[in-house]
Design a protein around this nucleic acid. Structure first.
Lengths: 121, 121
DNA sequence: CCAATACTGAACCACATGGTTCAGTATCAG
DNA sequence: CTGATACTGAACCATGTGGTTCAGTATTGG
């Protein structure tokens, strides 16, 4: 369950920032596929698909093995653990922002109540 | 809590695929900041930072408002809901792959047990 | 053995990205 | 009013991206 080697968040996020590559991952979640299969599925040249596979492989999202002349692709070691963690962390930060905002608003309201009698428009 | 308008996953993932931009988000989680503040913090030209801000703004991750000559940046409407959902979905897919693999392995083991007596090496 | 298949690699293309500098414009402080 | 400040926009640059085609090489089916 441990990430084999820490791949930069940049690399992983960039890898999944492409609709075609997300599609490939989805596809490989169903079953393994050869590069040709994938190229056909996504209406793309073999070479084009190979580049996508390379990006996904670099990100640890896809693993491949070649038997004879056909290279088979399957989901790789990365389950996007660190990436998920980053997003969760961000969401907490994001929520905290509103908590802070609420506190501020409360503070202002209270202030207004105090100042109200001599500062009211 | 609802996403204002559905921003493409591509755009958001690309936005957070950059370490500087993730840093900016982290920074804005603490407190608002002007473009100049951020440019200084990240040792970058004002223009360079403005570009990053623009990317983050397009992704809905940052919101800005200009008062006088200073533009202030704060965290934007997107809490990366859809992006988090996609990753969670992927993780489930990823785990399912192992479930399938386990089933296969079990099947093979059982098969081997049956065939064992006449196929043993 | 020979042709078809499956991939690989190099080269090219248009366009995006991450950064810069330079020349504005608008606002603020004194 | 004038200079400093804060941003904006255009232009440029090197590099990366997403795609292609074309020319290989390696395997396989017949």
């Amino acid at each position: 369950m441990v990430q084999y080697q820490p791949i930069a968040l940049d690399t992983s996020f960039a890898a999944i920032a492409d609709a075609t590559r997300r599609g490939v991952l989805q596809r490989l979640g169903q079953a393994e596929a050869s590069v040709t299969d994938l190229a056909d599925s996504f209406h793309m040249s073999l070479t084009g698909m190979k580049k996508h596979i390379h990006v996904l492989e670099t990100a640890g999202l896809v693993a491949t093995h070649k038997i004879g002349r056909v290279r088979t692709c399957q989901l790789g070691p990365s389950a996007l653990d660190r990436e998920a963690a980053w997003i969760i962390g961000y969401r907490q930060l994001w929520e905290a922002r509103f908590a802070a905002l609420d506190t501020l608003v409360d503070h202002l309201k209270q202030q207004e109540a105090v100042d109200g009698h001599d500062r009211r428009k």
